[in-house]
């Protein structure tokens, strides 16, 4: 599985309140929520994002609340992958559980620029910046987590184990 798209770049500690502000959490409807993705730090994001695009960010991406709405809106907007220097643990767990690919790679997160054209290969963990020609290797998921992603999320994997 691969994704190719343009990069939206953000700083450290992007929290779940800016990914999807709580004032919109009066609905569980993903499409409705996704209209407000990243609104409080980047009003242009939802207007510009296209299928397969990649979010690149610094340390501790997704810190704060446990709201699963956060990875859900990022995925629903069409984002193909999030690359960060590190992820907050609940966000990391939620992203895997709903099937949003996320990769930790400090070097790539540092060097890749906003607007670059990037390809991410989830099977190998190879990130290619097509604009600069540089490649980066991120750590592959452990088998336990690969299984969840392959089955299409946590609940699907549980049903499969029945």
């Amino acid at each position: 599985m691969k994704t190719t798209g343009h990069v939206f770049k953000y700083a450290d500690n992007v929290d779940t309140d800016v990914i999807i502000p709580a004032r919109y959490l009066n609905t569980p409807n993903a499409a409705e929520l996704a209209l407000h993705c990243m609104e409080d730090i980047d009003k242009e994001f939802v207007k510009k994002v296209q299928q397969g695009d990649v979010i690149v960010a610094g340390w501790n991406f997704g810190c704060g609340s446990s709201r699963e709405h956060a990875p859900l809106v990022i995925k629903t907007c069409g984002t193909g992958c999030v690359i960060a220097k590190s992820f907050a643990r609940i966000f990391y767990r939620n992203a895997i559980n709903i099937g949003l690919p996320i990769l930790e790679c400090p070097e790539a997160a540092e060097e890749i620029n906003a607007g670059d054209d990037v390809t991410v290969d989830f099977d190998t963990g190879i990130i290619t910046d097509n604009t600069t020609g540089k490649t980066y290797k991120s750590q592959a998921f452990p088998p336990f987590i690969q299984n969840i992603i392959e089955k299409g999320g946590l609940l699907a994997s549980l049903k499969d184990n029945d």
Binding site: S66, E68, P71, I90, N94, N97, I98, G153, L154, L155
Partner: peptide
């Protein structure tokens, strides 16, 4: 520990 809604659903089921 805090988790997301999918973990809650799985926890309620299993």
């Amino acid at each position: 520990t805090g988790v997301g809604s999918t973990d809650m659903a799985a926890g309620m089921a299993t």
